[in-house]
């Protein structure tokens, strides 16, 4: 495992910590897109189904998968229960049907294998690449975002951005390629790039 992969995974963990910390300290979920959070839960559940049969392969991967599914479910639980009064569905209006539909079409057309787990894996990769759009859309509508929300989005974006040099290293040193993950990862990073630009220049 190279430094970029570890950096990416740590960045992902940090983003989760920032999000939960923000909600717990402010006792609200203002500025957080519920739709994006639901999309992430769908992403993790459909991708990490393999926990059921690859659990023994890598303790590291398995632990991270459990953390990602668990924290994502917990975030949604908090938004639906403890902090529900602070969630405003009127500003969280992105049409996620198109994101889910588009990801499903891509997954069905170009999986590595036409098996349930491979199609779901591919679906999760495509869906992850666009899952931040409701959040970015909400940010654009409200104009001003809390600093902590921008830190969250930055850390989440940095995670997939760091996977790109990881894939380059793996291609050079391990002859590893994963075209679906790489193309989707590049799209994901491009979607964040405008945000990264604003983050750095603000």
């Amino acid at each position: 495992m190279n430094i970029f992969r570890i950096g990416g995974d740590l960045s992902h963990l940090i983003s989760i910590f920032i999000l939960l910390h923000k909600m717990r300290t402010s006792k609200s979920c203002i500025g957080i897109s519920f739709k994006s959070q639901v999309l992430y839960l769908i992403v993790y559940v459909t991708r990490y189904l393999d926990l059921l049969w690859t659990f023994q392969h890598s303790t590291y991967n398995s632990l991270m998968k459990i953390i990602f599914i668990g924290s994502s479910a917990y975030t949604i639980y908090l938004m639906l229960n403890d902090f529900k009064p602070t969630h405003d569905p009127n500003i969280d209006t992105f049409k996620v049907e198109y994101l889910i539909g588009g990801s499903a079409i891509l997954a069905l057309l170009f999986p590595y294998k036409w098996t349930t787990s491979e199609v779901l894996w591919s679906f999760s990769i495509w869906l992850e690449s666009v899952a931040i759009l409701p959040q970015l859309f909400m940010l654009q509508r409200t104009g001003e975002a809390e600093t902590i929300t921008t830190h969250y989005i930055f850390a989440l974006g940095a995670y997939r951005a760091l996977y790109i040099p990881n894939w380059l290293c793996r291609y050079l040193f391990e002859n590893f390629t994963d075209p679906i993950a790489i193309i989707a990862g590049i799209i994901q990073t491009i979607l964040y790039s405008d945000f990264f630009y604003i983050y750095y220049t603000k």
Binding site: H57, K65, Y112, E118, N175
Partner: peptide, 10 residues
């Protein structure tokens, strides 16, 4: 390595 049945990334 590279076997699509065993994705080793997150």
């Amino acid at each position: 390595k590279g076997d699509p049945e065993t994705h080793d990334e997150l």
